[in-house]
């Protein structure tokens, strides 16, 4: 540093001198910040890795094929599975999706194309508020609305509660995805004389499909992990076995609607509900089944996720022609 005496430097040299100083400082600052952010990123990933590996460790010990395919056995007996809860989770999630997706897509299309109208603003505001409502309140609401009127807990009530919970997620992601599709694509269709509904259906939604499917998937994954609203609505039912309902329905020559009605009118268990109930019991066997149920829930969501990703990848590469 001392080799530059101030008198020998003209102003440009001074500038360069300071630049070099600050360059070194910036380089070091950059290194420090990079290390810092790297550490924090790993820290953020830590809970995820921890949770997954702990559940795999604890649940994996009890997991076997029987656990997926057998109904629960009475306490004190060896074995038994959570088939009823797997079936219940699928029933509830599908039901929630079937109820929520069509109106959510329509609301999203409306909000995307009429975003400045009163109704458009109301949809956006309303879904934001709805997504902030605690899920147990949704359960309470459906209890008052459906369970009390029906006179019993049911899968239908659980499905409705889950539908209300995933509705805002689907609306907002779909709306964003529709807004992201290039306007020129839409104009290309309209310029051919296509009416707006046709354009939306066969061009905009097709172009936005990947994002929309991802949004729906996020919603369904969340729904399949919900516990609180189901306490008030689906309740839980260790004797729920779709195979039995269907076979007895077929044996009694019941119609499809009657069988569906029997599937939806009963209380039903779900994986999070089962794991919550088992975890409270003072029997070591139930506790380990609870861990295994947690692992099954995670596997279900993972499989759903991976399957959709593969499907989306295939679709993308078909569209891009690669």
């Amino acid at each position: 540093m001392t080799q530059f005496s101030q008198s020998r430097l003209d102003s440009i040299d001074i500038a360069f001198y300071h630049t070099r100083l600050s360059y070194n400082r910036r380089k070091i600052t950059n290194q420090i910040m990079l290390i810092f952010t790297g550490i924090l990123t790993s820290l953020a990933l830590l809970p995820l890795v921890w949770i997954i590996s702990y559940v795999v460790y604890k649940g994996g010990q009890y997991l076997s094929l029987d656990f997926f395919t057998q109904m629960p056995k009475p306490l004190g007996m060896e074995g038994g599975g959570v088939l009823h809860a797997i079936e219940g989770t699928i029933i509830l999630t599908v039901l929630g999706g079937v109820i929520a997706i069509p109106p959510a897509l329509l609301a999203a299309i409306y909000a995307a194309y009429h975003s400045n109208t009163i109704l458009g603003i109301a949809v956006r505001f309303g879904t934001d508020v709805l997504s902030g409502v605690p899920s147990i309140i949704v359960g309470l609401f459906v209890y008052a609305l459906v369970v009390k009127n029906q006179g019993h807990y049911s899968a239908l009530a659980g499905g409705i509660a889950l539908a209300i919970i995933i509705f805002p997620t689907i609306v907002r992601t779909t709306e964003e995805m529709i807004k992201l599709t290039p306007r020129t694509l839409r104009e290309g269709s309209l310029a051919l004389g296509a009416p707006e509904w046709k354009t939306t259906l066969s061009v905009t939604l097709v172009a936005a499909a990947n994002g929309i499917v991802t949004g729906i998937l996020l919603g369904l994954a969340r729904a399949s992990g919900e516990t609180a609203p189901l306490l008030f609505t689906a309740l839980g039912n260790e004797n729920y076995e779709i195979g039995k309902i269907i076979s007895s329905g077929v044996a009694n020559r019941q119609g499809l609607l009657a069988i569906l009605n029997r599937i939806f009118e009963q209380p039903v268990d779900s994986l999070p509900l089962t794991l919550w109930k088992y975890a409270q019991q003072p029997y070591p066997e139930r506790i380990s089944q609870s861990w295994a149920a947690a692992l099954v829930l995670m596997i279900l969501i993972l499989v759903l996720n991976i399957a959709t990703r593969i499907w989306l990848q295939r679709r993308m590469s078909r569209l891009q022609g690669r």
Partner: peptide, 18 residues
């Protein structure tokens, strides 16, 4: 619809449908 059928349009950026 009839007008747009008779008068086609090509845009600045190519916009093939997906």
């Amino acid at each position: 619809v009839g007008v747009r059928r008779r008068v086609g349009m090509v845009f600045q950026r190519p916009n093939p449908f997906p």
